[in-house]
Every structure is written in structure tokens, then in C-alpha cells.
């Protein structure tokens, strides 16, 4: 059998790297490698002429406000390629600031920054940070993470990634967390997100393999350490949550 190979594009790793985001890329790469799947990681930075044609998974992280502004100018120039990829069912995982960037705008304390407008949601800055552990029910499994954001995101009827069991989520009001459109996943969860959420990581890998090779099943890995880490965090939030691991 020939070697399976996926291409992952990390968007603006130099600018958007605030909350251990590279840990998500590392987790995707390792969980592929442990299954014998080769991963080619392309870093797309400002001004790069990247060929996105073969990208199976896009990743964009969060950053300081100033850096987000710089990234925003550049990312508009690749908007058509991203739109095309999304309609081709490619995966786009966006965290925190990168997530906000996908929407229509971010209304900050000083000014309003236009987002990419790939999805019809918007974000407004509030005075207080939402900080702490968060548990989210996606319907299929539970996500465990840490959130740390000032933005309040309103989905305008789009599907959320999941519903908040404990924590704040998109805006602290409607119990939604993140967004899910086709294979675009936006979320405030970091910590980073994927090491403690192997099911989501594997779902992303499965989608990419299905898109590229029409392969349905994914080899199981030994996730006992991941599950223990999930149990430990869940228990620290509420003893009753331990079964969510």
C-alpha cells in the first residue's frame, strides 16, 4: 500500500501564536505519524506566495490585537482560495483570534476591524475576560479546554461547535461555543485544544483522509494518557463530569 500523505497549512504562525497554538499542529502531525501517515506542514506567513491547492487541513491560531490586524490585511488576499477550499470540504480549524477573523467584524474598544466575512457571525469586545476551564458537548463527545478571551461572538443562527456544559463559550449568554460550517471549525478553546481532545483531532484527520483517499476508517491509538488528563481536568471542575472523559 502506498504511503498516505496529508498537507497541513499553518496560517501566520509568526503572528498568531499566542496560546500554545503550535501544540495543535504538533498534535495533528504526531497522531498522523503514529499511524504511518506522512504530514507536510506548510507555514504561510505574510507576503508568502503559497500554493493552497493541495492543502487538506488549514490551521489558524490566535494572536495579540496588533498582530491580528497585520494578519488581517494579508489574509484578505487569500480569501478566494480559502473560500474555494471550504466549499471543497477541506478542514479549517481556527482558534480564538483566528476564529474571530473568520467572521464579519470584530468591534474592539477603540475601533472596528473587518473580518474575512467567510462566515456570517460577528464579535464584540467586552470589558472582562472570560477565563477558565471549559467543557463543551458537541453531541458526539465532550470537549475539554481552557478559554481566555475578551470577545463575545454572536452566531446569527449558524451552527455552534457545541453547547457549553461548564464555562462561558461564545458570549456567556446563549450557551453556544464555537462555530461549525461544513468542515470549518472555529472555537475559543485552547490549552491547546487538540492534545486533550483526541476525538476531535481524529475527526479532522478522518475528514482529510476521506476527502483525499476516500478512506473511512482510522487506526485506533492508545489514548490512555489523554483520557487520564481529561479525567483530571474534568474532576477539578466538577466530580460529576468525570464520566465525560
Amino acid at each position: 500500500m502506498k504511503m498516505l500523505k496529508l498537507t497541513l497549512c499553518h496560517l501566520y504562525p509568526e503572528l498568531l501564536n499566542l496560546y500554545g497554538d503550535s501544540g495543535n499542529v504538533l498534535t495533528l502531525v504526531k497522531r498522523c505519524q503514529w499511524r504511518g501517515i506522512d504530514v507536510n506542514v506548510i507555514n504561510h506567513n505574510i507576503g508568502d506566495k503559497t500554493d493552497f491547492k493541495d492543502v487538506d487541513i488549514f490551521f489558524i491560531g490566535g494572536g495579540a490585537d496588533g498582530n491580528l490586524g497585520i494578519a488581517c490585511n494579508d489574509i484578505n488576499s487569500i480569501k478566494p482560495q480559502l473560500e474555494f477550499a471550504i466549499e471543497q470540504d477541506r478542514v479549517l480549524l481556527a482558534i480564538c483570534g483566528g476564529y474571530q477573523l473568520l467572521g464579519k467584524y470584530y468591534k474592539g474598544k477603540r475601533d472596528t476591524v473587518d473580518g474575512l466575512g467567510l462566515l456570517d457571525f460577528y464579535t464584540e469586545a467586552a470589558d472582562k475576560y472570560f477565563v477558565g476551564n471549559i467543557v463543551v458537548d458537541t453531541g458526539d463527545y465532550y470537549l475539554v479546554g481552557f478559554e481566555n478571551h475578551m470577545g463575545r461572538t454572536y452566531l446569527n443562527g449558524l451552527n455552534p461547535l457545541g453547547h457549553v456544559i461548564s464555562g462561558f463559550g461564545n458570549n456567556g449568554k446563549d450557551k453556544t461555543e464555537g462555530v461549525r460550517y461544513k468542515n470549518v471549525i472555529g472555537t475559543y478553546l485552547h490549552g491547546p485544544l487538540l492534545p486533550k481532545n483526541p476525538k476531535l483531532c481524529d475527526e479532522i484527520i478522518s475528514i482529510a483522509l476521506k476527502n483525499k483517499y476516500n478512506i473511512e476508517d482510522l487506526q485506533e491509538l492508545d489514548d490512555s494518557l489523554e483520557i487520564k488528563a481529561r479525567q483530571h481536568t474534568l474532576k477539578s471542575i466538577n466530580n460529576k463530569f468525570i464520566s465525560f472523559a
Partner: peptide
Amino acid sequence: GRDVSWLWD
């Protein structure tokens, strides 16, 4: 610091 995501940086 309550946020330990820096471990991955």
C-alpha cells in the same frame, strides 16, 4: 498564571 497553554510554546 491559570492558563498553562504556554507549555506548548
